[in-house]
Design a protein around this nucleic acid. Structure first.
Lengths: 217, 217, 217, 217
DNA sequence: GATGAATGAGCCTTCATTCAT
DNA sequence: GATGAATGAAGGCTCATTCAT
């Protein structure tokens, strides 16, 4: 059967890595569409325009496929904020802003990808993969963010605990992702990545008014 | 066969409603322990100290059991914040505080229950149940919170958009729940409901410094 | 819950035998409605306006209930043709006619009852009950019929084998029952007991034209 | 695992249609052996020397498997009498004889296949499949048979109603099938296809003595 | 590499039977 | 006698995985 609409135009001779990436992306689409529990290898095969056999061939098992997807997402996430922070002006405000706003880079984060993330969150109970793959990365980001917050608190004389503030911003980021991910379901009050960006900027301005301005004012 | 440890001491002839509630609570425990995808009817039966047959007898199907669990959680959530707001002092600051802190009432929200919520979030894609049951409740809470924020903004002269502020607080609440739910997994930086309460209070103080003080200062 | 429409007006104190008969009749109705494979004890209970427990109480098991139904039908069948033959005029033509037409006595044979019979035929494979209960009765009827046929052949000088003739009439009787039983399903060309009677009389006239006239002529 | 005795020597990669036919035939064998109610997918799989999964893979559900069996039987039945009538000499007596005797063609109708038919008769209540698949075919055969009877009545001057006569012969055919099908159960007076043929010929001779002779005389 | 028929373990669901009330 | 919640064995169906082609 010739390639489906989802095939991305790759022929039968795609290299090993290209094919794996193609399957990872198909899995993300299915995860967003059906959730973790309802995802089957056959669904992924169909979404990729390939057969079920080839998935097991490349990934050994369904669990390993899903672990590869999570690994891809985690690395992409890490690279995305790392690079955003590196590219930012060399002052704590710009760095912190880059760190927390990187999560809403529309080039990287479509609702589909966020929905895939939420699906993994929901399944992190009882499965050690999530922790194994994400715990270190998460911690590093929290530590970096807290350092920037501390600099701002010290230089701006804010009455804030930098640890608590970073945890608040981190939690808000997760919550906004959830809202974006559920936007596909038509839930009331759900958001676009652009709106999230605005909400996050407004929050930065609330916590650090002498370093950030309310957006749009 | 003697009752298992999970039986809660209820005899064979518990009333229909009591038995259903007992099964709903067992389901929440399993959801927290194994996640949505790995939950089986047999797991729930074992956790409740009953047989698999009785679950279908009372709930018709596994899907209907899970819908009943979500319905229970959604109603409990609604009643919890409604009652907290009603019991609060009659001023917008107290009302808003009651609204957003109700989510961390330790009498209601154990890590288990939050993990169950996250499991449903992860599966809300592709299943209309979540939206059907929760959309209206969620919207009502956002509207109420925004009204309190607007009062504070007007009386306190803050440079804030009430809608955006409430969405920020709401997202933060969801993100904190996620952090609590994952505390069972040993993930770094995860939180207890008490810490969440503190973080949320700190955030209220950041947004509305003339109405709330930083906690512990 | 008070008695359903199917209760036949019998109160809670029905005697053992009356209650068993009530349950047998409910089973026949269910058999006609749903067939043998789909019949459940709960269906019968509902049709009788009673609980499932009482069926097992009276009949020990579902198999025993169904055996009782078949036993009832077989005995009713036996008594019906025996009595019809006994009541007939004392000549072979009248006796044979009474024998084969007894199957279409509308006081005894409603489409429901015939459908129940067919359901048992369909399940007679692999279950010895049918044979155990019916073989002797069937044989006795065939022997009696053959004797009447033989008398007619001898007295009428027909070029017929009495054994084969009786088997033909017997098979036709079964086939006509099938047609009546399926009349509930709306199958084309299906028949009423009255039409069967006519067809059977026409056949008697064909086999033994000097003893029977074509009906309606 | 080596193929069982029932495998018929077909390898793992039989074509889709061949495999489906193989499973249909296994189902007929099980139907004859255990009846409709007791038939399980596992029984059929075992009888075919295959696994249970492959049955659902090819037929979607047990119900669809059984419907496919009935469809096969109905088409085979239709083709059998159609072809027999077409091959017969071009006169009404030969056509009618071919029509009614086709049912006892020993190349097509083994006791197993007849038992499978009876099993479907018994379950036709409450299930519309039987009617859907067979009603049209049955009607066409009755109409054709009646036409032949009418020709004979007109040319032979018989005092018969062609419609009633054909219904009588049709019912007799069904009843004889029933007798053959139950021959496996050791019921007294049960018949072989050859005996049925003889009985049917005797009946044709009884109805139309100027066109058919009593067999064996 | 790629396919898809085939396998079989595991799960949801049904339902005859039990038994406390 | 009668009820109906509870049990648990059995069966239909799903789906990850295998493997002949």
């Amino acid at each position: 059967m010739p390639s489906s609409a989802a095939d991305s135009g790759l022929g039968r001779k795609a290299s090993k890595e290209v094919r794996k990436q193609q399957l990872i992306e198909a899995t993300i689409r299915v995860l967003a569409l059906k959730g973790y529990a309802a995802l089957t290898v056959a669904d992924v095969a169909k979404a990729a325009g390939l057969s079920t056999g080839i998935i097991i061939f490349h990934f050994v098992s369904k669990d390993e496929l899903l672990a590869s997807v999570l690994r891809f997402l985690a690395e992409e996430y890490y690279n995305n904020w790392k690079q955003a922070v590196a590219a930012a002006d060399d002052n704590p405000a710009a760095k912190l802003s880059a760190l927390v706003l990187a999560d809403f880079n529309p080039d990287v984060y479509t609702p589909d990808k966020l929905a895939a993330w939420i699906a993994f969150w929901g399944e992190s109970q009882g499965r050690p993969i999530y922790e194994e793959l994400c715990a270190g990365f998460d911690a590093e980001r929290l530590v970096a963010g807290e350092r920037f917050c501390r600099s701002l608190v010290e230089s701006g004389g804010y009455d804030l605990d930098p640890d608590i503030t970073m945890k608040a911003l981190d939690a808000m980021g997760d919550g906004l992702w959830l809202a974006v991910a559920q936007s596909g379901s038509g839930l009331t009050g759900r958001l676009t990545p652009q709106e999230c960006n605005q909400i996050m900027q407004a929050s930065l301005a609330a916590f650090f008014p002498r370093h950030f301005a309310q957006p749009g004012r």
